[in-house]
């Protein structure tokens, strides 16, 4: 065991994993995090806490993770390189481990221009792949980036994102390979709507044997309304929403039910793809639907390891 986290246990035991996302509040309420944690704890193996997602200031990922940990949830600390340099990153990692966090997702982060402080100075001292390397070295060699020794263990299960829907498509698998080479243990992909493109990407990954070197969790976003489908189709860089999904949502009598059905279909399809080890459900502002989806997808109960 690299970290002993619940997520690592589920994945290494060969079971199909379920993770979900918990966005911390734009405020100080621990209750908000706890409420989401209580709602999601029985239906997922680990819960990601986003790190100032879309560059909007929210409660820190690390504190959200600690709150979840207190409920018995296995948290995944997301960390973007947008806001911290190598000094702050390594320091936060030490603190996170001390506080019992065992999973970490290494990300570039949405550019600050998208957020609510668009004139902020972006840090980008290192990039997300270099971050993976740093965490791996901290864990496996107990050394900081500069080669100095770390006192104590750094048991972290290292994750990263992958986006099969960004360009250049042919490079996307090479980039995945780079992340694996850098030392990633698990991958959570961008939300999948175009299953055909995702399965082509997976086939290319399998050709390189990458599905055996890291656990790939397929990203799923349940769509709540036709407006949301249209918005994501046209406004979110790196997400592809096929026309038929937009029109299905637009034509549905019960849009929410249709959104659930689409999510369930996608889960069923990606489960059938060789090398997919789980799903990562990102129900932005619709967290209460996650237990329903996991239940209806036949993924309950979650393993107790």
């Amino acid at each position: 065991m690299k970290s002993g986290s619940n997520l690592e246990k589920v994945l290494t035991s060969g079971q199909f994993a379920v993770t979900a996302e918990c966005g911390p509040p734009k405020g100080t309420s621990a209750e908000v995090v706890k409420r989401k944690g209580e709602m999601l704890k029985s239906c997922c193996d680990a819960l990601n806490v986003t790190d100032n997602q879309t560059a909007i200031v929210r409660m820190s990922s690390i504190s959200g993770c600690v709150l979840l940990k207190g409920l018995g949830v296995d948290p995944v600390m997301q960390m973007v390189v947008r806001d911290r340099n190598r000094i702050a990153i390594q320091s936060d990692i030490l603190g996170a481990v001390a506080l019992g966090i065992r999973n970490m997702l290494c990300l570039s982060g949405d550019h600050q221009k998208f957020g609510n402080h668009p004139s902020a100075k972006g840090v980008y001292d290192i990039d997300s792949i270099q971050l993976i390397q740093i965490v791996k070295r901290m864990r496996d060699e107990k050394k900081f980036l500069n080669g100095e020794d770390i006192s104590g263990e750094v048991p972290l299960f290292i994750g990263a994102a992958a986006n099969p829907f960004a360009d250049p498509f042919e490079f996307r698998v090479r980039r995945l390979a780079k992340k694996i080479k850098a030392g990633v243990d698990f991958i959570q992909t961008q939300a999948i709507f175009d299953v055909e493109r995702f399965s082509r990407w997976m086939a290319m990954a399998r050709d390189e044997g990458l599905h055996e070197k890291a656990y790939i969790l397929a990203g799923v976003i349940p769509i709540k309304s036709a407006g949301m489908a249209r918005y994501m189709a046209s406004n979110v860089a790196g997400i592809t929403v096929p026309k038929e999904i937009v029109s299905r949502m637009a034509g549905a009598k019960d849009a929410k039910e249709e959104g659930i059905k689409i999510a369930l279909e996608i889960i069923e399809q990606v489960r059938a793809i060789k090398g997919v080890h789980g799903v990562h459900i990102m129900a932005v502002a619709w967290e209460d639907i996650v237990p329903v989806i996991v239940e209806r997808a036949g993924l309950m109960p979650r393993p107790r390891l």
Partner: peptide, 20 residues
């Protein structure tokens, strides 16, 4: 690169354009 990435492109690269 808007993020100064050394091992890009990031997941926001679409049709040859930057996400920003």
């Amino acid at each position: 690169c808007s993020k100064g990435l050394f091992n890009g492109p990031c997941g926001g690269s679409v049709n040859g354009k930057c996400e920003i």
